[in-house]
Amino acid sequence: MWVALSYACWGISIVLALWMLYDWFKIDTTYSEEMLTSSREGELEAVSEKHRI
């Protein structure tokens, strides 16, 4: 049982790691670098206060 669990853990790790790599690739190719790195310290207040979440 424990050995099976161990293999399941490897399986989950690989699947999720691949998914993250896929998502990363997709995001980086879909959006521009300027947009992705546009977060600025301190400007958040002004931006997020407008939206009620």
Partner: peptide, 11 residues
């Protein structure tokens, strides 16, 4: 949810 052309962390 993008404000203008900016993304930020979510509050």
């Amino acid at each position: 949810q993008v404000q203008g052309d900016r993304v930020s962390l979510l509050r």
